[in-house]
């Protein structure tokens, strides 16, 4: 059980921001922090791991106090035993894959554990390679394996899959699930990908401007609108042009550009750059598999 009740002033991209958290996470759960860049997700992981010190509050993990602003109690990152997978992987460039893992062993650690992890993450063939020679997905697996060497109490994954393409991503999600099943570790993941969150997590915390604005299971958080036969997409207006009697509005939805027909009365309140909701009554949607 993790109880994180902290406050910390941050210098966000939009000026100063107060990170104000009150989060409880049950033991063995896989939870996701979701939210826009600069919402305080990475800072939350850094505070939990001791790399960033909050101004107020307490951190309690499995009954032990890790941080208490009042009594000035603060465990160093070295003593918190946290497995941390950094966004840039942070592999040690001068060490081979195997050495990167062995570095995390304690003095009386067993080399066999390193081999077991290498096998589990299918890294045995790569064990003598330096990080420079690895692909993004391979580096990611090394980082994940390395974080597990010290048998952490908590595993923190800071957008571990964001830089990878879809196919490798799906495979690595399976690795994360496997790790979570085998070790039953309390895991906190930062992710922007709703599909990924559905697949992996028990609980989601949605962060906005340093505060949790929503939390619950992925279904509760992302499907809170009543389910209907409607398709709804949020997008941005790129262009508005007149075509005969109607107007054509070009809207960017994620990475797709679509054209929507609009009446003059609807156009009046629209400007280029506006955030809009494009909705459609879908009578008979067709699903195609994408390779």
């Amino acid at each position: 059980m993790i109880a994180l009740t902290v406050q910390k002033k941050l210098n966000g991209p939009n000026g100063d921001m107060l990170l104000d958290l009150d989060i409880q996470i049950k033991k063995g759960q896989l939870v996701t922090l979701y939210g826009a860049s600069g919402a305080g997700k990475t800072s939350t992981l850094r505070i939990l791991s001791g790399l960033l010190q909050p101004e107020k509050g307490t951190i309690q993990v499995n009954g032990a106090i890790w941080f208490d602003a009042v009594t000035k109690m603060n465990r160093t990152p070295q003593t918190r035993n946290i497995g941390y997978v950094f966004q840039d992987y942070a592999l040690f460039p001068h060490m081979t894959v195997e050495e990167n893992l062995s570095f995390g062993l304690s003095k009386d650690g067993d080399k066999k554990e390193v081999m077991e992890l290498l096998e589990m993450m299918e890294l045995v063939d790569l064990k003598d390679r330096k990080p420079v020679t690895l692909s993004g997905g391979q580096k990611q697996r090394v980082a994940l394996a390395r974080a597990l060497v010290q048998k952490p109490t908590i595993l923190l994954l800071d957008e571990p899959l964001s830089a990878l393409d879809m196919k490798i991503r799906l495979k690595l999600q399976d690795y994360i699930l496997k790790v979570h099943k085998v070790y039953a570790l309390t895991t906190i993941l930062i992710s922007h990908d709703i599909g990924e969150i559905y697949k992996l997590s028990d609980q989601v915390f949605v962060l906005e401007d340093g505060k949790v604005i929503k939390n619950g299971t992925p279904t509760e958080v992302f499907l809170n609108d009543k389910i209907s036969g409607k398709f709804k997409f949020k997008g941005e207006v790129l262009k508005i042009e007149k075509d005969e009697v109607v107007y054509l509005v070009t809207v960017l939805i994620q990475n797709e550009v679509v054209k929507v027909i609009a009446q003059e009365s609807e156009i009046k309140q629209l400007q280029i750059g506006d955030r809009v909701l494009v909705a459609s009554k879908a009578f008979n949607p067709v699903i195609y598999k994408i390779e």
């Binding site: 791991s49 001791g50 790399l51 160093t76 990152p77 070295q78 003593t79 918190r80 035993n81 946290i82 497995g83 941390y84 950094f86 966004q87 840039d88 942070a90 040690f92 570095f103 995390g104 304690s106 390395r146 060497v149 010290q150």
Partner: peptide
Amino acid sequence: IAPSLKEAAYVMGKS
């Protein structure tokens, strides 16, 4: 050096 390199060693328990 990226700060994460140093931090990775810290969370791995290294002084």
